[in-house]
């Protein structure tokens, strides 16, 4: 049993302590916006916030988030209208879209720490995440757009 907060909701999950947080989020809690990509912290598709910091949920044991606050893409904003989400639509970033939850969560972490990042800072921060469709330039533009609007 693990107890934590996810998107502002307190949950008790009947899961093995070693269960990856990713699968707990996706299959136990049915929040499938967080994606499985590699399982080894290499691609960023599984990124969520744990106490406001990005984490690879595939490499995070559920026991390690006991009592902590998790935010997933579904909880980034109540209405799906976080400035980054709006910028993602305005710049039409997603293609296949599979990596984009992780990209947005990673970008939200950047803007929380650094509301006006330079292009180099954006690139350095976002290079943890793979987009196989090659939407990188649009991700940069969307982050810059959101930074102007925050």
């Amino acid at each position: 049993m693990a107890t934590f907060t996810i998107n502002g909701r307190d949950v008790d999950v009947d899961a093995h302590p070693d269960a990856p947080l990713l699968w707990v989020i996706r299959e136990h809690l049915k929040l499938t916006g967080t994606k499985f990509g590699c399982g080894v912290g290499q691609c960023g598709a599984c990124m969520v916030h744990v106490d406001g910091q990005t984490a690879f949920s595939c490499r995070t044991r559920v026991a390690d988030v006991e009592g902590r606050e998790i935010t997933t893409i579904e909880g980034l904003s109540e209405t799906g209208e976080h400035p980054l989400q709006q910028a993602w639509i305005a710049e039409e970033v997603p293609q296949c879209g599979y990596c984009q939850s992780g990209q947005i969560m990673r970008a939200a972490n950047l803007l929380a720490m650094n509301p006006q990042p330079t292009r180099d800072e954006i690139v350095a921060h976002m290079s943890t995440n793979i987009c196989r469709c090659g939407t990188y330039s649009r991700i940069v533009r969307a982050i810059e757009r959101a930074a102007q609007e925050v």
Partner: peptide
């Protein structure tokens, strides 16, 4: 594109998301 908004909020359903 019709599919874009759902791909920014986690609601787009891929094969792996099926329950």
């Amino acid at each position: 594109r019709l599919d874009v908004p759902a791909k920014t909020n986690g609601s787009a359903e891929y094969g792996i998301d099926v329950q």
